[in-house]
């Protein structure tokens, strides 16, 4: 299901270009709108679809095995911590699902260097261990003989 962009909706902001892991969303220089330059290198990862503020990007299942008439649309609401999907079947049946995406506010992660540095460069413990292992100590190997 490679992406395509609706002519009437895209305003050329470039956010999809910025996010696509495959580097295949590009802006057309003449009409200043985005399009998929290499559909056979699209993984249908929806990164661009979720990022587009205009909801201008949609998917059409890969031509080699997807009969026409289907749909899978998404709304990712970061502020509400959820993602919603609507599945539309070729025969008209629909299904809707909503799932949580994050239990903390965006940008709330504490950088590692704001924690006091405990432990020793020479031992086997990683940052926040053994505490974060939630067991007393790091397991070692019992020797086989």
């Amino acid at each position: 299901m490679p992406t395509f962009v609706y002519m009437s909706a895209c305003d050329g902001c470039g956010l999809c270009v910025d996010i696509c892991p495959s580097d295949i969303m590009h802006l057309d220089r003449d009409i200043r709108r985005a399009y998929n330059i290499e559909p056979d290198y699209c993984w249908e990862c929806y990164s661009c679809v979720k990022a587009c503020p205009q909801h201008a990007i949609d998917m059409r299942g890969y031509a080699d095995f997807s009969p026409l008439g289907h749909g899978l649309t998404v709304l990712r609401e970061e502020d509400k911590g959820r993602v919603s999907w609507k599945v539309t079947y070729r025969n008209g049946q629909t299904k809707e699902f909503t799932f949580p995406i994050r239990s903390t506010r965006p940008n709330s992660i504490r950088p590692p260097d704001t924690f006091p540095q405990e432990g020793d460069m020479g031992d086997q413990l990683l940052a926040h261990e053994p505490g974060y292992l939630k067991v007393e100590k790091l397991p070692g190997l019992q020797k086989v003989e």
Binding site: G61, Y62, F65, S66, H70, V87, R90
Partner: peptide, 14 residues
């Protein structure tokens, strides 16, 4: 793997 959902929708597989 969203494309699997698309295959279901496109091929009418519930």
């Amino acid at each position: 793997t969203m494309s699997q959902s698309i295959v279901w929708a496109a091929q009418n597989i519930d």
